[in-house]
Design a protein around this nucleic acid. Structure first.
Length: 881
RNA sequence: GCACGCUUAGCUCAGUUGGUUAGAGCAUCUCGUUUACACCGAGGGGGUCGGGGGUUCGAAUCCCUCAGCGUGCACCA
């Protein structure tokens, strides 16, 4: 017996920090220090968590997924690199800190603190939050290379961002333009189209006329903006209104000046919807603005300002009013002047700012944009083209530079998004973020670059960049770009990326854009899309609902391995999944099982050493478990290669618990003398589990006094044991006998002590069963076992037939014959039914002629088997009379 | 409005290109306290795979249609 004492159950809290330190000390998280010759790289850029708080379950899921992938590839002999990092999350962080400040009584943080002080507050918050998050990532067991830690807002990344901006500016892809943009009044900043959250709202729609003699009625949900109307659009073929096209009307709605309304034609107007005509407000609607660009002569009047109040142009009566005040006033004015026609309630969905929560206004403004349609100098392609190609024919038509996406349905979602993509507004008026690297000189010269010229007064652009601008560069800014570093050369494109589908457009699209543009490379070869986690009732986890589960609390209670396993098991790519405590408890039970299996093996063997080569099988059971292991290795490897994490874990679980623990170990206890096989199978198992449950497996591995950490051992290879054709039949017979005896006993309510004698009668399996005699006796807990090869069923016995063996259980008045008979009759009926259905199939000519030969053969075999089974049941029935 | 996803055992979900009598975990019931583990072991019950139609020798799987739920996009005059 080995001198190893392990506690009765696994205690993660005693193990995890110690093991993580051990991993870090070895330096193996850094691919440069990995042992052995490693040619190809496997790189994952960690989706950087926002520094807006603490880690939630979504992060825990991502950590588990990417770390499992990386650990697997590290064992496969790849230069595995997981680059850790955090995201400054411009708007999200500033919004969060401003909210906090407001709670502390600072009503308007920007005004009261000023730029520098507010930035200092945000920076403090971000740094604190970052510290917490990084320690939590460690707690998850994530095997990332901390020497390459990055932050989207640190000096290196800022340099990359500025460089990228200048390059795009010089190529004419970044421009400053006056356009209608989404404006959050509350946040005092623009938002991109993708940052809008649409919410259903009950609103009224008002129908009115501009003037009593105006020929076309107009409907609107935003009456106050009508003070800025400059045109009415109708369908060019609309018989009712055709004749007015091109005419101008002067109407006075009480704005600063009477409005000149031009009737214009636009194919997008649906003549059958509403009044069939659209009042055009170029300044306060993106679509109207586009109409304005096609008909510039109509003019543009801005009646709402950046402060969310009516402007001077709205007229003396309205200037300074809020939108709601102006709306009420204008509607009552319409009524007073007999221009009002009707009002109805409708459900309208409005865009709100995802971070500030207010309904966004469309306002015309001077902002910075990325032109996604312009041909890139020297490339004959636009950014849109690049984004499309990367997932279709491959970057620049190179099939090797093609991104694959799991699951496939996201290709189309992504592509249709690109089709609708407008120029990307990248400037924000918040302060937390990369300041736009543009300076304006004393004579209004424009300088773009990192450092402004020193002559005269140069003033930097006040705005900051959309946070996704820096996130888009993440795969390469973390590897040293714009310098031509060794990292960049050997690690980019990265291998694998994962993300939730909710940031597909925000992030995946932008990474593809930036990387294909700046490096002429795709950012990664493969994307795994995961769903979001929901609670037991299918609700999203959220702070405001208060249904959040803290990963750290779960780790405290159940351990990291259990958390990781429970997150990965039972999920499918791209689909949401529910998460609740019972799942973790189940996973914890498994981890404990693994621990106890190891504990038993370590106690049972003479010396706990590493067994590298598959040992020779000594018995039927050995052969069986080795073959089974080999098959498991093959399957799990295949599954992991195709990102099927959950099925891989399930397959392993089944082998570990059902086959190895419940059957093989029980047999091994009786057969004895199996040190090498026990150690070998266990060690292979630990390797297979390492990517999923790194802590417990590494902790157990310590007991073998191996040279290397488990983390850097080689992934198991499938080694088929010598193929014995009889193997599967024999093992089935052997296990079948044990199970049968158990069944007879349990279903007949015979107490073990009263079980007197069992006869096994077999023509061909006698030797086999003689050899396994002790195992059968112990596992089935019968006291006596008589094995003969004569088929002489005693009259007072119940017969069960397994394989080629009949098990006769002497009744001795102990079996409930009635119950047994009932059971058998039920089974009989089932089988007869089954035989009927197969027989019908086998006389069906169409089946015989059209089905493939294998299938027909299969069906015939099934029939034979069933008939055999039927015969056995009948025999059993006869035997009990 | 368009698109996508989901609907399978009491619950949570698997089910790869159509082919054993549709699976797992949890829950439930019966039995079991054997020295790795009660965070355990052996068994059982439980499903006309959302409804309807079609293709096929054969459909949970492919097609059509309806319903419920969810998501994205557009519209929002």
């Amino acid at each position: 017996m080995a001198q190893i004492e392990l506690s009765k159950s696994y205690d993660p809290s005693q193990v995890e920090d110690k093991i993580y330190q051990l991993w870090e000390q070895t330096g193996f998280f850094n691919p440069d220090h990995l042992p052995g010759k490693r040619r190809s790289a496997f790189v994952v850029s960690m989706p950087p968590p926002n520094v807006t708080g603490i880690l939630h379950l979504g992060h825990a899921l991502e950590s588990s997924l990417m770390d499992t992938a990386v650990r697997y590839q590290r064992m496969r002999g790849k230069k595995a690199l997981l680059v850790p990092g955090t995201d400054h999350a411009a708007v999200a962080t500033q919004a969060r800190v401003e909210d906090e400040l407001k709670k502390r009584g600072i009503v308007n943080p920007r005004q009261e603190l000023g730029r520098d002080k507010l930035l200092a507050e945000i920076r403090n918050y971000a740094e604190e939050s970052k510290k917490i998050i990084l320690s939590q990532i460690r707690k998850m067991g994530t095997s990332c290379d901390w020497s390459r830690l990055a932050y989207t807002f640190d000096a290196e990344r800022s340099r990359a961002v500025n460089h990228l901006f200048k390059q795009m500016y010089d190529d004419g892809l970044i421009y400053r333009g006056y356009r209608v943009v989404n404006w959050s009044v509350k946040g005092q900043s623009t938002c991109s189209d993708d940052e809008l959250v649409y919410v259903d709202q009950t609103t009224k729609v008002w129908t009115f006329k501009y003037a009593k003699d105006f020929p076309i009625p107009i409907a609107t949900t935003r009456p106050e903006t009508k003070l800025g109307d400059t045109a009415v659009a109708v369908h060019p073929d609309d018989e009712r209104y055709k004749k007015y096209i091109g005419q101008k009307f002067i109407v006075d709605l009480g704005a600063q000046k009477p409005l000149q309304i031009t009737i214009i034609a636009d194919k997008n107007v649906d003549p059958n919807y509403g009044t069939g005509a659209v009042g055009v407000t170029p300044a306060h609607s993106q679509i109207d603005y586009e109409m304005y660009q096609a008909n510039k002569n109509i003019g543009i009047i801005q009646v709402i300002g950046a402060d969310g109040k009516m402007t001077e142009a709205a007229g003396r009566d309205y200037q300074g009013l809020t939108i709601n005040q102006a709306r009420e006033k204008f509607v009552s004015w319409l009524k007073d002047n007999d221009l009002f026609i009707k009002e109805e309630e409708i459900i309208n969905n409005v865009g709100t700012s995802d971070r500030f929560g207010d309904v966004v206004e469309s306002l015309p403004m001077e902002q910075w944009f990325i032109d996604v349609n312009k041909i890139i100098p020297g490339r004959q392609q636009s950014l849109k083209d690049l984004m499309r190609q990367a997932v279709t024919i491959g970057h620049r038509g190179d099939a090797k530079q093609k991104i694959t996406i799991t699951p496939e349905r996201f290709y189309n979602i992504y592509l249709s998004w690109i089709d609708n993509l407008r120029d990307w507004c990248i400037s924000r008026q918040i302060w937390w973020g990369h300041r736009i690297p543009v300076w304006y000189g004393p004579n209004k010269e424009v300088f773009v670059g990192e450092q402004p010229p020193t002559d005269g007064e140069w003033v930097q652009d006040e705005d900051t960049l959309d946070t996704w601008f820096s996130s888009g560069a993440w795969t390469f800014s973390t590897l040293g770009w714009p310098d031509k570093t060794k990292d960049l050369k050997q690690f980019h494109p990265t291998a694998w990326m994962q993300m939730g589908y909710e940031i597909l457009f925000f992030w995946m699209a932008r990474m593809i854009l930036m990387s294909t543009y700046a490096l002429d490379q795709i950012p990664f070869y493969h994307v795994y899309i995961h769903g979001i986690l929901r609670d037991k009732n299918g609700k999203k986890f959220s702070k405001s609902v208060g249904n959040g589960l803290d990963p750290l609390e779960i780790i405290k209670q159940y351990g990291t391995d259990a958390l990781r396993l429970s997150l990965i098991k039972g999920i499918t790519p791209g689909n949401d999944s529910r998460f609740y405590e019972e799942k973790v408890a189940g996973a914890r039970n498994f981890v404990n099982k693994l621990w106890n299996i190891s504990r038993y093996v370590l106690q049972a063997v003479a010396e706990p050493k590493i067994i590298n080569k598959q040992p020779q099988a000594q018995s039927l059971a050995d052969q069986w478990i080795l073959n089974d292991l080999s098959e498991t290795v093959e399957t799990v490897t295949q599954l992991l290669d195709s990102d099927a994490f959950s099925p891989a874990a399930e397959k392993l679980h089944e082998f570990t618990w059902n086959d190895f623990a419940d059957w093989y170990l029980e047999i091994a206890k009786i057969e004895g003398g199996k040190d090498e096989i026990l150690l070998y199978v266990l060690q292979q198992l630990l390797k297979l589990w390492q990517p999923f449950c790194p802590f417990v497996t590494e902790e157990i591995w310590q007991n073998f006094k191996a040279k290397d950490l488990l983390m850097v051992t080689d992934w198991p290879q499938s080694v088929k044991a010598a193929k014995d054709k009889r193997l599967s039949g024999d093992i089935e017979c052997f296990i079948g006998v044990i199970k049968t005896i158990r069944n007879l006993r349990s279903e007949s309510n015979i107490e073990p002590a009263k079980l007197i004698k069992i006869k096994l009668i077999s023509a061909t399996k006698k030797d086999l069963l003689e050899k396994q005699r002790e195992i059968i006796k112990k596992l089935s807990r019968c006291q006596e076992l008589e094995i003969t090869d004569k088929s002489s069923a005693a009259k007072d016995s119940a017969v069960a037939i397994t394989g080629e063996v009949e098990v006769h259980l002497l009744l001795a008045g102990l079996i409930d014959l009635k119950a047994e008979k009932e059971r058998l009759n039920k089974e009989l009926a089932q089988i007869e039914n089954y035989i009927k259905s197969i027989s019908a199939k086998l006389v069906n000519e169409q089946f015989l002629s059209r089905a493939p030969k294998e299938i027909v053969a299969q069906e015939k075999a099934k029939l034979a088997e069933a008939e055999d089974h039927l015969a056995k049941i009948k025999k059993q029935l006869i035997s009990i009379g």
